Simulated assay, not measured.
Amino acid sequence: MTQVIEKVAWIHLDAGRLLTARTHGRDRFYLPGGKPEPGETIEQTLLREVREELGVTLDASTITPFLTVEAPADGKPAGTTVRTVCCTATPTGAPGPCSEIAEIAYLTHGDRPRASATTREVLDRLAATGRLLRW
């Protein structure tokens, strides 16, 4: 039986690099964001998760759906998929590790091996459109 985990993530590019975060105890980098709480909208989840994980406030009026990615879930039983709604939004403040985040990194397409399956898919799509550095 296939299980689907729903998530929301923030897509933030800086100089052709994608902002990612690594949680304590993990070795892969993920997109900032997380699972909606019961009754939360995509926008509410994105605002809450980015504030908790990175200490950044997003401008709610600029939240724009960017793409939806489905990929195998890292560290979960076979057949588990993560469906991630990825959005862009304008931040206030500089991102930094907060809460469960051990480290942030701006990845290029060449950094794919360091990323989760979902993040690799986003890196591939951004590189294909020329929005991401390839090295």
Rank of each mutant, 00 (worst) to 15 (best):
T2D: 11
E6A: 13
V8D: 00
A9P: 09
I11R: 15
I11T: 06
H12F: 14
L13R: 10
L13P: 06
A15I: 02
G16Y: 07
L18Y: 01
L19W: 07
T20V: 06
T20A: 09
T20G: 01
A21G: 02
R22F: 10
R22C: 12
T23R: 15
Y30A: 14
G33H: 04
G34F: 11
G34M: 11
P36Y: 07
E37D: 14
E37Q: 15
P38E: 10
T41C: 04
T41M: 11
I42S: 01
E43K: 12
Q44H: 09
E52H: 12
A60L: 00
I63Y: 02
V69Y: 04
E70Q: 15
E70S: 14
A71K: 03
A71H: 04
D74Y: 05
P77R: 05
A78I: 03
T80P: 10
T81N: 00
V82C: 02
P91D: 05
T92F: 09
G93A: 11
G96V: 03
C98R: 15
C98V: 05
S99T: 01
I101Q: 01
E103C: 02
E103A: 14
E103K: 11
I104A: 04
A105G: 00
G110I: 13
P113C: 07
P113M: 10
A115F: 06
A115E: 08
S116H: 12
S116T: 15
R120P: 04
V122G: 05
V122R: 04
V122H: 02
L126S: 03
A127V: 11
G130C: 11
